[in-house]
Simulated scan of single mutants.
Amino acid sequence: MFTKIDDFLKEWETDTAVTERVLDALTDESLGQPVTDKHRTLGGIAWHLVQSYNYMTGLGLEYDEPLAGDEIPASAAVIASEYRRMKEVFRRALTGQWTDETLRRTVSMMGEEWANGASLRFTLNHEIHHRGQMSVLMRQAGLRVPAIAGQTRDDWIDMGRDPLP
């Protein structure tokens, strides 16, 4: 649980920069890569990350721009751009409306009482979870996965080193 807005923002900036690299690596063709025929596609998961900022309004944050729409764009560039837009909309709302004291307040979320600071932790964990799913689908779609938590197999090869099995 976060107890200071600045602590959250530092970690969030690092994590969202990784998400931006992942989204920037997507192609329009890759968006249709499915997990299975009964699950989200790569584009659906990417759009879910954009829309996840919508849910923060359930914690009482008010946005100064429209929420992300329901329809998944067919353009990877649009998804990446909307992610950046919603990220900034969220940042403005968070820094303008919440304080360190606000992080201790509880709100009913998903049928439970969550402290706002815990909701911010969930926000990061949620994004990390879906980024992991996306990395697998990116490989299946033939895309190069950017560094997420250290160098990738492709990075090792580019450096002339043997990748780990």
Rank of each mutant, 00 (worst) to 15 (best):
I79Q: 13
G58S: 13
T14F: 12
S30M: 01
D100T: 10
Y63E: 05
Y53K: 06
P66K: 13
N54A: 09
G69M: 03
D28N: 14
Q51Y: 03
D28T: 06
Q51I: 01
P34T: 03
D100H: 07
T95M: 01
S30Q: 05
L42R: 06
A17D: 04
L23S: 13
A74Q: 12
E20Y: 08
H48G: 02
V89Y: 15
M86W: 12
P34E: 03
P73L: 01
Y83R: 03
L61P: 12
R85S: 10
Y83P: 04
L26P: 07
I79E: 13
K87S: 14
A74R: 08
G43K: 00
E13P: 00
D15K: 04
A17V: 04
T99R: 12
T57L: 09
D70E: 15
L59Y: 06
T14Q: 10
E65M: 13
W47Y: 08
G44N: 02
T14R: 14
G32C: 02
L26E: 02
E82L: 01
Q51T: 11
V89A: 13
Q33D: 01
T95G: 04
R85Q: 10
E71W: 00
V89F: 09
T16N: 13
A80Y: 06
L23G: 06
Y63C: 03
W98T: 08
A68W: 07
Y83K: 06
E20A: 15
G44S: 03
S81W: 00
T99G: 14
T99Q: 09
L94V: 12
L94H: 13
S81M: 03
G69R: 02
V89Q: 11
M56D: 09
T19S: 12
L94P: 13
T99M: 11
A93Y: 12
A68S: 08
A46L: 07
L61D: 12
P34F: 00
Y63Q: 05
A25W: 02
V89T: 15
Q51H: 09
A46E: 01
V22I: 07
Y55W: 14
A68N: 13
E62N: 14
M56S: 07
W98R: 05
L59W: 11
A93F: 06
D64V: 00
M56K: 04
E82H: 10
A77H: 14
R84W: 07
E82M: 10
T95V: 07
R84H: 10
G44V: 05
